[in-house]
Design a protein around this nucleic acid. Structure first.
Length: 469
DNA sequence: GCATGATCATGC
DNA sequence: GCATGATCATGC
């Protein structure tokens, strides 16, 4: 192996490419260390509070491949080159596509210092602007992580268009802390850069500068959705790219830009839009309104690059002339036996709402039932609604299933004691299946129609901006 | 007319 | 075949 020039990013990258095709165990062995040190390495990792050894694999590469001592200060790992080293997993999905397995944690948020930072000179950006990404393939059949194989080693710098969005995300997080709301931060607040919780236990809380409320410790991170995009578009050559929403006239604020695009169609009817976009109304696809939302953004298909990267879910919302939203909002079904093993802080549904930002495209019906565009609105669930209302429904659901679901069958129609719409302002549980015979197993061995959490239509309505109602 | 349970339509 | 988004149907 040749030595690298630690002041030169491409020299470091070039050296790193020797890792491709090797396992972590190979790296240690080729470092001509006694084999028992392989075990020591993993003990070392385990003692560093990260039970997945992720920090450990990074440390291993630093110490056994690059041969520098890990610094724990806020400089990049290669200070003279300005390069930060990140060792991160990806996975191959059943359908053959590649996804990042995890978010990429950049640096802890210091609530007291970040409020005085500007983006370009922030701790976060110093750690994010030039990253050497070492991707290894996660494989759950491999129990010893040292036998994971490294597949890619690439320098990565967020491109200019991404940088604008990351900067906007940074200021949104900073300003929320400056407003004394560090305890209300949520990953769904932002697009590519998230503020992820980093608490080992729920008892772990930090002070914040402009409020007496204690806040969860959080770190700046690139979201999984963004990292998946990075992997497929910048790391693996020749992969597909999606259509862009952003055109040349884009300024600073992505969300305002998107909202403006939809606003241009405000007052137009569905009929008018179908005509303009050449959509065949006689077929009336069920997802027509969502489809038209993409057309208004200039997207032919239903995959916009920026939405994919930011994990934004488009929802069409139809308000009737009686000022009620016609339908409740459904989510993926849950498995009864899995739900009762979860705790709320790590629950599938809780995490979905924490991590997802929605783009509502709002239509309103006139007296004849004809739908007109009102506008667009980005939304993620407010912290208190999630942690009180939705949480209580989730806890109740878990309790009911755990204690044994009560089912009554009258004339072929099942009724049950899961949380009903009338019991909570935000959320309820209802069937979501192909038909009543489409079931999952209950903990006691019975089978029951697949269910999911729904957000109440009245709750969604309360979240819509007044000028869009 | 609403609440709740049941089912449809589409894409992968 | 299934997940997902969306909507239908019935009894009160």
């Amino acid at each position: 192996m040749y030595k690298y020039d630690e002041t030169n990013p491409s020299s470091i990258e070039c050296y790193a490419k020797q890792l491709i095709g090797k396992t972590f165990a190979d790296v240690v062995i080729e470092d001509s260390a006694p084999i028992n040190e392989v075990q020591e390495s993993s003990d070392y990792a385990a003692s560093h509070e990260d039970k997945n050894y992720k920090g450990g694999l990074g440390t291993l590469i630093e110490e056994r491949f690059f041969h520098y001592g890990a610094n724990s200060d806020d400089r990049p790992d290669f200070p003279e080159a300005g390069v930060e080293l990140k060792v991160t997993p990806f996975k191959i999905n059943p359908n053959g596509t590649y996804s990042a397995k995890e978010r990429l944690v950049l640096t802890m948020i210091d609530y007291f210092s970040v409020v005085n930072e500007e983006f370009e000179d922030s701790h976060m950006w110093r750690k994010a602007k030039l990253i050497l990404l070492i991707y290894y393939l996660y494989d759950k059949s491999i129990t010893n992580r040292l036998f994971y194989k490294i597949h890619f080693a690439n320098l990565f710098s967020p491109p200019e268009q991404d940088k604008k969005i990351i900067m906007h995300d940074f200021y949104l997080i900073r300003d929320k802390i400056a407003a004394g709301k560090a305890h209300e931060l949520s990953e769904g607040d932002t697009l590519y850069l998230g503020a992820v919780t980093k608490a080992a236990t729920s008892a772990n809380r930090r002070k914040q500068p402009y409020s007496d409320e204690l806040a969860k410790p959080r770190a700046f991170s690139f979201k999984v959705s963004y990292m998946t995009y990075v992997l497929n578009n910048y790391i693996i050559p020749g992969k597909e790219t999606y259509e862009h929403i952003i055109q040349d006239d884009f300024e600073e604020d992505f969300e305002a830009y998107v909202i403006n695009k939809v606003k241009r169609y405000s007052g137009k009817s569905i009929k008018h839009l179908c005509n303009e976009f050449d959509v065949d109304l006689t077929k009336k696809p069920k997802n027509l309104e969502a489809m038209l939302a993409y057309k208004m953004l200039g997207i032919k298909g239903n995959n916009a690059e920026e939405f994919v990267k930011a994990n934004i879910v488009v929802k069409a919302i139809r308000i009737g002339s009686n000022n009620k939203i016609k339908e409740h909002m459904s989510f993926p079904t849950f498995k009864f036996k899995e739900l009762i093993e979860e705790d709320w802080d790590n629950s599938v549904f809780g995490n979905y709402l924490r991590d997802t930002r929605f783009f509502f495209v709002i239509y309103k019906a006139d007296e004849n039932g004809e739908l007109y565009v009102k506008g667009g609105q980005f939304w993620n669930i407010p912290y208190n609604d999630l942690e009180t209302d939705v949480r209580s429904v989730w806890e109740q659901t878990k309790k009911v299933i755990r204690e044994g679901l009560i089912i009554n069958n009258v004339n072929g129609i099942n009724t049950n004691n899961l949380p009903k719409q009338t019991e909570n302002r935000a959320c309820h549980v209802r069937p979501h299946a192909r038909n009543a015979a489409d079931t999952y197993e209950l903990p006691d061995g019975r089978h029951y129609t697949k269910q999911c959490f729904w957000l109440n239509n009245s709750y969604i309505y309360s979240q819509i901006d007044n000028e869009l109602k």
